[in-house]
Design a protein around this nucleic acid. Structure first.
Lengths: 249, 249
DNA sequence: CGGAGTTTTGACTGGAATCAACTGCGGTGG
DNA sequence: CCACCGCAGTTGATTCCAGTCAAAACTCCG
């Protein structure tokens, strides 16, 4: 969850030092909590656990997923530094979260978090903003899963990865894919074989070029966009779409 | 703050006229706005429109959808009386909404809505609650679209419909399906033919029985639950229907 | 009664899943 | 040092579920 674009504007830790004490941010809220570390592959929380804490990711990548009775896994999103995790009104988590890479999080008691949020007119719109971004990402994902074919899914995913990097620093053609093929497959509703075949095909067509174990370069960005299939959509990347209305002041 | 799935409690339109002024609800907030009517098949708003208003559905059923460049349609959800529509922080709607049946809505200026929300400590958690429920529904849908087969999708959908009716009145085995096969297909990521075939098969197995044009009876509820595929999930319905048989007397 | 739209049914196709074998890399220990 | 193992990823052969194309049947309304 919260995997979508624009929260870097709010939470990105590249944003530098200027944060006046009169303008608390979600990030600063977690700032004092001790850091907890998780090895790759270990669980931060399980579906069904008592939803007693809210987390902020400070380092690494996490996967949010659910498992069907017979073992089928669905990854509903990935979490990156700055993302918030565990916000809900149910008293149990309705998904599990594991570390994809070595990862660090800060933890906040749920009640305390709610208190802070409900009393701070600065924090509230920030949280609200996150929820809306998350919802938008979920809708994109539903479109992908409902109607896109394997190639479109993989291309959409690669663009999502590219967007993350682009947001942090300009013009980086080398993208790090932290997750395994299995993670990608379970996120895209495909099998590892299909993901692999599709990537191979994209590489052989010169659209992308693998670069080491978990890296790849995008050689034909425009082609990738076309192949992602979001036909009439204008670029969600910059200004036009990301422009946000100011919520409550 | 953040009371449990208060949707029907807040929004149920059976609640009649009495709303004490000391306990504002989202419903009462919209109460004074004029009612707008829409014929079946007409649009309430389009993706890309200026997101100038928030709506409350007061009657009928709406579909929320997006269209890919080449015409593929994805319905991301249906809206019923009491549901709120158009809440986001983007300045353009990112989905279209049409009336499935004859429908009525009330409209609220976005800025005014934001004001009301941000100044009312009663309204805020209600809105928050809606967003969380919506998010939970979206995740269920991602699971359905990513990993469930045609039969499981259709059964999950029928259960969703059944749950709506159950919430309103007890023990109603006849369910009204307001939408067409095409709507169902576009919601479930299938084709009309596959939906039709699957329903026919369920009927021939005695799990369901069609009842008129848009109605059907669920004859074997437990079977339907099993076929929906949400393996280890406990019953999200309040009853312990499936569980009773297992208990020693 | 007729005609358009919706749904069902049937025959066939195709894209992704499945099953299976192989490659390549990284770590480990003899 | 390198032989061995284990895991992630790739590649190939085959299967199967849902999509596609086509036509018939049913409904709703004027």
């Amino acid at each position: 969850m919260f995997s979508e674009s624009a929260q870097t504007a709010i939470a990105g830790h590249a944003s530098g030092g200027f944060v006046p004490p009169t303008a608390p941010t979600l990030r600063s809220l977690f700032g004092r909590q001790p850091i907890e570390k998780f090895e790759a592959g270990t669980a931060i929380l399980w579906e069904g656990d008592d939803a007693s804490h809210i987390f902020e990711v400070t380092e690494g990548v996490l996967r949010v997923f659910r498992i069907l009775g017979d073992g089928r896994r669905v990854i509903t999103g990935f979490l990156y530094p700055g993302d918030i995790l565990g916000v809900s009104l149910k008293d149990r988590y309705l998904y599990s979260v594991e570390a994809v890479t070595h990862a660090q999080v800060r933890r906040f008691g749920r009640n305390r978090f709610q208190e802070e949020i409900s009393r701070s007119p600065e924090l509230r719109p920030q949280l609200f903003s996150r929820l809306c971004d998350e919802m938008a990402a979920a809708q994109d994902q539903m479109v992908l899963l409902a109607r896109k074919n394997a190639e479109e899914r993989v291309c959409s995913f690669l663009l999502l990865m590219a967007r993350r990097v682009k947001a942090d620093q300009q013009t980086t053609p080398v993208i790090e894919i932290a997750m395994t093929r299995l993670d990608m497959a379970d996120y895209l509703g495909l099998t590892i074989e299909t993901v692999s075949r599709t990537m191979t095909k994209l590489a052989s067509r010169g659209v992308i070029a693998p670069s080491g174990r978990h890296g790849l370069k995008i050689l034909k960005f425009a082609k990738l966009v076309a192949l992602a299939g979001d036909g009439d959509e204008e670029d969600k990347t910059d200004s036009n779409y990301a422009r946000r209305a100011v919520w409550p002041n």
